[in-house]
Design a protein around this nucleic acid. Structure first.
Lengths: 146, 146
DNA sequence: TTGATATAATTTGACATTAAATCATATCAC
DNA sequence: GTGATATGATTTAATGTCAAATTATATCAA
């Protein structure tokens, strides 16, 4: 027989497991960032530029789900390390386009490959069909609020 | 036929969906913390004290997976708000035991109930058996590294 | 007892994060 | 053109985060 308490218990339990799995997996995947001394946000910015080409800061912020004020600082730090450069748009001077430097491109190519390999290794504890199923359930869950 | 690329694609895809689901659900659950103006860490500390009783800072750090240096600051801010108080252990003066104040206990009881209700609401987009399945897959995934 | 070692908490320095305010530039309505 | 409004980037203030160094206290070994 199903009671409200059963449902509550099940929901809380599932939520906890989802969070633990996500933290545990990201924790291990992010180890690939420690050697090159990249923060997660820095990696996110480099990866966005690597896969999408030069972007303005607002678009980068939207891509990695951070505030624009934050991006300013993250770009500052990447620029200090010579991994990206800023270029003011001559058409609309409100925009600044961020480009990977050669060093930045080389670094992110290497690091992204490492991260990718590490994700594949993590997912290896599930069979193909389990992965499909997990993906399906996660999608259903994430869609809820929009 | 299965190729390495299929596997890689599937793994990356599953990983992305897992991360998006986790972020999306936590994002919505954590809205319950914005009205009482609690940060996630502050909530974690109050919740630990609420469910486990008074704890020393080292134990709190272990419980919410943060560094002890971090806990010092979070407790400072909670103390300023009158939600917790520090008490130096008279047996072993290296320890400081953190207690909820009456105000802190009242606040966390209310906020925890809200968070709990919001988790249940989130999980409502999955059936009971889907929740069981998701929990099972997450557990299997999280266990990988220890 | 004294010295080495261990442990809990704090401090420091660097970076991240957001919200809100501000600055510079662009665009739209008139 | 001028003024109102919108938009991209920056700054600021408050908090969080870690790693590493430091401080205070305790314990163990000789």
């Amino acid at each position: 027989m199903k009671t409200p308490n059963d449902s509550t218990y099940r929901a809380l339990n599932t939520y906890t497991k989802l969070m633990r799995a996500a933290e545990s997996v990201t924790g291990r995947v992010h180890r690939a960032l420690s050697a090159p001394k990249l923060t997660i946000s820095q990696f996110g910015v480099l990866e966005a530029l690597y896969h999408k080409g030069p972007l303005c800061q607002k678009d980068i912020a939207a891509k990695i789900l951070k505030s624009t004020g934050n991006i300013t600082l993250v770009i500052d730090n990447l620029e200090k390390q010579g991994l990206v450069r800023r270029e003011r748009d001559s058409e609309d001077r409100r925009y600044i386009t961020i480009h990977l430097t050669d060093a930045g491109a080389a670094l992110i190519a290497k690091v992204f490959a490492d991260v990718e390999a590490s994700i594949v290794a993590e997912m290896d504890s599930l069979t193909d069909s389990e992965q499909e199923l997990l993906g399906h359930l996660c999608k259903k869950l994430g869609l809820k609020g929009g």
